[in-house]
Amino acid sequence: MKLLLDENLPKKLKLDFPEHEVYTVTDKGWNGVKNGELLKLLLNDGFDALLTFDKNLQHQQNFKKYTICVFVMIAPINTYAELSKLVPLIKKAIKKSTLVGPIIISL
């Protein structure tokens, strides 16, 4: 699966998904790209999912027009120590067959 880490996530999270092809927004040169445009870029570049800490994204975009999954990570702060606790839940969700739209991931 091809995953993109939003710019609000620690780059170190890439290491927690060795079985997947993982990029950061910085890797792709997409820093500062607004959410609607970012979703279009994801689709055009063959990504399967976006991981983000942006809790508002799920309310700002019409996911009916995108065939992409967005994992919205909910934690007290967006540090690697906190967000890495959510990785097993994301991996469990990835194994499901239908991944479209926002999926809230929290402990």
Rank of each mutant, 00 (worst) to 15 (best):
A75Q: 10
L99D: 05
V22S: 00
H20C: 01
K96S: 15
H20E: 10
C69Q: 07
F53S: 10
V70R: 05
K64T: 14
N35Y: 02
N8H: 08
P88I: 03
G32D: 12
K95W: 04
F63E: 01
L39S: 08
E19P: 01
H20Y: 04
F63M: 02
E82T: 14
Y66N: 02
L4S: 07
S97W: 13
N78A: 11
K14Q: 15
N35F: 01
N44M: 11
Y23L: 05
L89W: 04
E19N: 13
T26H: 14
K14D: 07
H20T: 11
N31A: 13
I77S: 15
K14N: 12
I104P: 01
A93Y: 06
L99N: 13
A81T: 14
Q58P: 03
K11L: 12
W30V: 07
N44W: 07
L42W: 05
T52I: 01
C69D: 04
K28Q: 13
E37I: 07
G36M: 06
L57S: 01
Y23D: 11
F47T: 05
I74P: 06
H59M: 02
F53P: 01
H20P: 02
L83Y: 06
Q61T: 12
T98V: 15
I74M: 13
T24A: 01
L50R: 08
I90V: 15
E7P: 00
L99K: 13
L13H: 10
S97Y: 14
Y80C: 06
M1Q: 02
V25W: 00
N78C: 04
E37W: 07
L57R: 05
D54T: 10
L43Q: 11
K34D: 07
N8D: 15
Y23W: 14
A49C: 10
V100W: 10
H20R: 03
F71W: 05
C69V: 09
D6V: 08
I105T: 07
N62H: 10
A93K: 15
K34N: 08
I90P: 03
N35H: 09
K11M: 09
A81K: 12
M73F: 00
L43M: 11
P10V: 13
L51P: 03
T98F: 10
A93T: 11
P88A: 02
I77K: 15
T79H: 09
L42T: 04
K96N: 15
K28W: 00
K28I: 00
L39R: 07
I105Y: 06
L89R: 13
L86H: 07
D16W: 05
I104H: 06
L83Q: 10
T52D: 02
H20G: 03
S97M: 12
E7N: 13
E21M: 07
T26N: 14
L57I: 09
G36R: 10
